[in-house]
């Protein structure tokens, strides 16, 4: 007669299900379908979807492309480490390297323009966490992820690393300017 004994009715699968239980099952099912449809709806009509564009790469290949991009587009350097500030051409490609323990280089974007930002890691997993916007993307070594981004507000943004990457993890802070 209880959940710790065999069902008292040996033909328990023939017992009718109460209306209230059916109703709750129906609510749960319909809600599940709505949540499922919502993700698909957002892919069609929403403006925030993570890019599907990704390629296998190696740290050497990615670094070479990024260095070329930096050499061609650097506008100035900042901080006593002379980190290059690179203006990404409007509508063009920008490269961001994640490595122990820095985001390199500093990117400069314009509000309302769409950019293809290429992300990859030179070593361990890292986490691209754009603050205070709060967009979070995993960065994995061996994969080049091409994310289309359109900044909606001017300002100075921080890139926090939010995937644990060793002892200097907390000092891995990058920067993006939006003009």
């Amino acid at each position: 007669m209880s959940a710790i004994l065999p069902p008292s009715d040996r033909l328990w699968w023939k017992q009718p299900i109460d209306k209230v239980e059916w109703a709750w099952i129906a609510i749960a099912f319909v809600w599940g379908m709505i949540m499922f449809a919502m993700m698909i709806y957002w892919h069609v009509y929403g403006k925030q979807n993570l890019s599907n564009e990704a390629y296998k790469t190696t740290p050497e290949m990615f670094a070479a492309k990024a260095e070329k991009f930096i050499a061609e587009n650097t506008v100035r350097t900042e901080t006593d480490q002379n980190i290059p500030v690179v203006k990404v051409p409007a509508g063009g490609d920008g490269y961001l390297i994640a490595r122990l323990w820095a985001w390199y280089p500093i990117l400069e974007l314009e509000k309302g323009q769409t950019y293809k930002i290429h992300l990859s890691s030179m070593d361990y997993n890292h986490g691209f966490s754009l603050q205070p916007v709060n967009i979070n993307i995993q960065v994995i070594p061996g994969y080049e992820h091409v994310v289309k981004m359109t900044p909606t507000k001017e300002g100075t943004y921080a890139i926090v690393c939010n995937e644990y990457c060793g002892i200097g993890h907390h000092s891995m802070l990058g920067r993006i300017y939006v003009k």
Partner: peptide, 12 residues
């Protein structure tokens, strides 16, 4: 999994 909200030692 982050030790320091103040980011000590970061360039920014």
């Amino acid at each position: 999994r982050h030790w320091d909200m103040a980011f000590s030692g970061a360039p920014f």
